[in-house]
Write a protein that binds this DNA or RNA. Structure first.
Length: 87
DNA sequence: GCTGAGCGG
């Protein structure tokens, strides 16, 4: 299977006030985002601090990773890496 | 009103 990226991106270490809309406009210019999902907590109704971003192609997803990995968002460092294809 | 490793529904 070798190294497979996948179109799903795992975005973590976000600020607790960052929303899905923020991620969308931050990851949109790097490629066509087909899906943006911010994981919410059922107890507080706020973000867990991580989410998922999907692109049309793996090359766009990989480009977004290199472009946004370890970048400053909302004054915090965010980690971007391919999500597990455990789906 | 806060916190801070991880892979959601």
């Amino acid at each position: 299977m070798a190294q497979r990226i996948g179109t799903k991106l795992f975005v973590s270490r976000l600020s607790f006030y960052t929303t899905k809309d923020q991620l969308k406009n931050l990851f949109s210019p790097f490629g066509q985002v087909t899906e943006v999902n911010l994981v919410m907590d059922s107890r507080t109704g706020r973000t867990k601090g991580f989410g998922f971003v999907s692109y049309q192609s793996e090359n766009e997803a990989l480009k977004a990773i290199k472009a946004m990995n370890g970048r400053i968002i909302a004054g915090r460092i965010i980690f971007v890496e391919p999500a597990k294809d455990t789906r």
